[in-house]
Amino acid sequence: MMTTGADTIRIDGEEIPFTPGQTIMDAALAAGIYIPHLCHYPGLPPSGNCRLCVVEAGNRSVAACITAAAAGQEIRNDTPALNAARTAITQMLFVEGNHICPSCEKTGNCKLQAMAYHLGMLDDHFAQFYPHRELDASHPGILLDRSRCILCDLCVRASRDIDKKNVFAIAGRGTDAHLVVNTPSGKLADSTLAVTDLAATICPVGAILIKEKGFEVPIGQRIYDRQTIRETGLQEHVERKNGD
């Protein structure tokens, strides 16, 4: 229930409260309104990388995860045009990496795959890139497969802001952008990354995997076999808020 006198915004006609400093994304999730996203994670500073959360605020298109809520905003989120744009972005993310769902250990736990289902994506539409990117299996407990990386930089922010280790970074620009390991050798084995670090488990796709854990949870019993990405996205926000 909305508090009398509270600052409010409207999303798709629904009036919701927000507190000063909240982004549109945080206000929406707190009110139980899902805005599609891949690079947003409760408790981490936002980056606006994936652009799936772009909404229309007045006459402007803005990323909900990095745009502050402001009193009186009229926001459109769930529209055919925005969802078509989100589908196109998701299709591009699929073809820019090697995302072969049936053979990937992350299937059923993959946010990119779940987002495709959420948006009703039926095909890749664009031609596959099939990139050849370095795979790093040097770490005794963690595998890094850059061919699946979607450059969300969740592992970068988790390592820097939560784990306090600064293991990862994004180097290059445009099509040359890639994930790097901040060690003189560039190898994961020479980093301080541990399997218990948030950076080791936060990857939304199959770019960072814990070794010797593959298929411990059978297909059919995995996260997105049981819940939609909308449900888990709203649940993540609640769990983080209750944990603070």
Rank of each mutant, 00 (worst) to 15 (best):
D145L: 08
C203P: 09
I223Y: 07
R133H: 12
A207T: 10
H237T: 12
A127L: 13
Q22I: 01
A6K: 06
D124L: 08
D145W: 07
T4M: 04
E56F: 06
D190F: 03
N98F: 04
V167M: 06
Q128G: 03
D190Y: 02
I66V: 15
D7R: 13
I24F: 06
G97V: 07
V62S: 00
C53R: 02
A81E: 15
N242D: 14
T201E: 09
N49W: 01
R60C: 01
G141R: 11
C110P: 02
A189K: 13
L151T: 05
E216V: 13
E56K: 15
D136F: 08
D7H: 12
R230P: 03
L234E: 08
P46I: 09
K241W: 14
I75F: 04
L151W: 03
A27F: 04
H139F: 07
D124Y: 11
C155W: 05
P131K: 05
Q235F: 11
V181T: 06
S185A: 04
A81P: 03
S159D: 08
A64L: 01
A57Y: 04
L179D: 01
I66S: 15
E212I: 06
N166W: 08
A6I: 02
P102W: 08
C155G: 05
H40E: 10
F129L: 12
L234Q: 11
S159F: 05
L93Q: 06
P218L: 13
L112T: 01
M121A: 10
L93G: 01
V205C: 11
T23S: 12
I9F: 06
G108F: 04
V181M: 05
K241A: 15
G5S: 02
G32I: 05
I170R: 07
K164V: 12
P80F: 09
A85E: 14
K111N: 14
Q227P: 01
V55K: 07
Q91W: 02
Q73P: 00
I35V: 15
R86L: 04
A207Y: 02
L135A: 11
R146M: 08
D78W: 10
M115N: 10
R10W: 09
T228F: 09
I35T: 10
A85D: 12
E15P: 01
R60N: 14
Q113G: 01
A116C: 05
E14K: 14
G5M: 04
C149Q: 04
A114H: 06
I16Y: 02
N59A: 13
K241F: 14
H237I: 06
E14P: 00
D197V: 05
S191Q: 04
T19M: 09
A70T: 13
K106H: 11
I24G: 06
M1I: 00
V181D: 03
A199E: 02
Q22M: 14
D26Q: 15
N182Q: 14
I142P: 06
K213Q: 15
G5Y: 03
A81T: 15
G141Q: 15
N242V: 11
A194T: 12
V238Q: 14
L193G: 04
R173F: 08
L198D: 02
C152M: 09
Q128C: 10
T107W: 06
D136A: 07
L29C: 07
M115V: 10
E74H: 10
I170G: 09
L135P: 04
A137Y: 03
R160K: 15
A28S: 14
G172H: 05
H118V: 00
T90C: 10
D244I: 14
N59P: 05
L193D: 07
S138C: 02
D123G: 01
V156A: 00
N166Q: 15
A63E: 12
T79S: 12
